[in-house]
């Protein structure tokens, strides 16, 4: 289980500091597929990076009771829209690199996914298209053999069929011990794929609900989000009125 207790995370800059995260307390159990939602700058990326130890924060994050460090970091993997692979290497070379450093690397899964998405294994990654790069980034995160797979908007630039295929394949191959935390803007698309939705707003946790619960309440995710963010659907009317008055 991943226990996240972040009381505060501040980014310091010239004009003082911004509170990127505030009082984010949550627990992630094995097997969950969590959708992490929030507006741009809500703190989704900061949260994921904090879990991985890439950011300093006030608080504590424990993986099965232990702090995240060299001894257990291999149980976490990361796929980011910024891409974390080596552009000058081929997928084949990446496989070797991962096998060298991760005892848990899933070779069979790697071959199966590369084949399924028709990705050339001997071509250098810098020659891949953006969509292919995204796919490869996610594949590596899935094949590391991690228990907690963190993905930060991994599908920016992939067409819908690509993405739909991915969700389906994921559901088919994931083991009950594997957990996914997926940060995305594609709410409607992932609504049925995830088991739980976590909402951030200006660094604070404003929503945390299981999809089952939503269904019981007969709400869908978008409506829940609109409520949570106090989205005013008539907001648009104001500007339309203002514009039509002028004329």
């Amino acid at each position: 289980m991943l226990e996240i207790n972040i009381s505060r995370k501040i980014y310091y800059n010239k004009s003082g500091g911004t509170e990127a995260l505030k009082q984010v307390y949550l627990q992630v159990k094995p097997g969950e597929i969590i959708g992490l939602f929030g507006e741009n700058g809500a703190g989704k990326t900061t949260l994921l990076k904090s879990i991985l130890g890439f950011e300093h924060y006030d608080g504590q994050i424990l993986l099965d009771g232990e702090k995240i460090g060299k001894s257990n970091i291999a149980r976490l993997s990361f796929a980011t829209c910024e891409h974390s692979f080596f552009s000058n290497l081929t997928p084949e070379a990446h496989k070797e690199f991962y096998q060298m450093h991760f005892k848990t690397f899933r070779e069979k899964r790697f071959e199966a996914l590369m084949k399924f998405f028709e990705l050339p294994t001997k071509k250098t990654l810098k020659n891949y298209s953006v969509g292919q790069k995204n796919q490869f980034e996610v594949i590596m995160a899935l094949c590391q053999g991690a228990d907690y797979i963190l993905m930060d908007e991994p599908f920016a630039g992939n067409d819908i069929f690509n993405r739909t295929d991915f969700y389906k394949v994921l559901l088919g191959i994931l083991e009950p011990t594997e957990t996914i935390i997926l940060s995305t803007h594609l709410i409607e698309e992932v609504e049925h794929f995830i088991s739980r939705a976590i909402l951030l707003n200006h660094g604070k946790l404003v929503g945390d609900i299981s999809i089952m619960e939503l269904e019981e309440q007969e709400k869908n995710l978008i409506n829940y989000m609109k409520e949570t963010y106090n989205y005013n659907p008539f907001h648009v009317k104001e500007i339309l009125d203002a514009l039509s008055e002028k004329e």
């Binding site: 969700y167 389906k168 088919g172 049925h192 794929f193 995830i194 088991s195």
Partner: peptide, 14 residues
């Protein structure tokens, strides 16, 4: 359950 979950693209809990 797993096969149907993957087929429909729907969480196994469902």
């Amino acid at each position: 359950r797993r096969a149907l979950s993957a087929l429909l693209g729907v969480n196994p809990n469902t």
